[in-house]
């Protein structure tokens, strides 16, 4: 089958339709399941991104306060990158819970080659220490990175996420715009697939096993 050529502009539409298909998978014969809708590139179940996203060549601060060169530190691994914040009540913890559960189910030789990297888009509240505490509640091996302001702006720009956006919730609380999906970087330092909320653990496990074993190899 041919790889469907998607631009980043239409990615959102695909992501939404996958989410909708996931939600409504049982609603009728016409509704395509998530795997069916995105299976046109070698049976990957994530959402395809063409051209793929590049792993940002940026340096952050990790939860122990040391510099973390993303490209160097994650070399040769499947890196699952998510941009979120710890005061996010819903989607961010959901992805962390899901990824922890998926990794726990994968064979050790597969999960050992996967790194989960969470970059905060809210460095003001998410100090390295606070981020480490939060991530530790899900999985102590998850890597938490805090960007400085220019690094954050560059990161958001590279991923087409625009300016960091804050929504005031009152009494000093605010929400921050964050990534709509988890990006899966293969050892070629490119993310060919992304995973919006609603992707099942089975689909996650399926793709991660393939990405670790073969790298990016659409059939």
């Amino acid at each position: 089958m041919q790889i469907q050529h998607l631009t980043r502009w239409v990615l959102a539409v695909v992501a939404l339709s996958v989410a909708a298909a996931t939600a409504g998978a049982c609603s009728g014969d016409d509704a395509k399941g998530p795997s069916e809708g995105v299976s046109n590139a070698g049976d990957y179940r994530g959402v395809l991104v063409t051209p793929p996203l590049e792993k940002p060549a940026l340096t952050f601060t990790d939860t122990s306060g040391r510099p973390y060169d993303l490209v160097r530190e994650t070399e040769g691994t499947v890196t699952l990158l998510y941009l979120g914040y710890t005061h996010c009540p819903d989607v961010c913890p959901m992805h962390m819970v899901d990824l922890n559960a998926v990794l726990a189910k994968l064979p050790g030789d597969i999960s050992a080659k996967i790194k989960v990297v969470f970059v905060t888009v809210d460095p003001e509240r998410d100090t390295p220490e606070a981020l480490g505490r939060w991530l530790g509640a899900f999985n102590s091996s998850f890597i938490g990175l805090t960007p400085d302001a220019p690094t954050l702006a560059r990161l958001l720009y590279e991923f087409g996420m625009g300016e960091p956006h804050r929504t005031d919730l009152g009494s000093g609380n605010y929400a921050v715009s964050h990534a709509a999906y988890v990006m899966a970087f293969t050892p070629d330092n490119l993310a060919h697939t992304v995973y919006p909320s609603g992707v099942t653990r089975e689909d996650w496990a399926h793709d991660l096993t393939r990405l670790v074993k073969e790298g990016w190899k659409p059939s």
Partner: peptide
Amino acid sequence: AQMAQLHTMVTEGATAKMQQ
């Protein structure tokens, strides 16, 4: 908890955000 609000998630392109 001192505050409780009804929220939803809105996805715009590569970005998702919470909205009251």
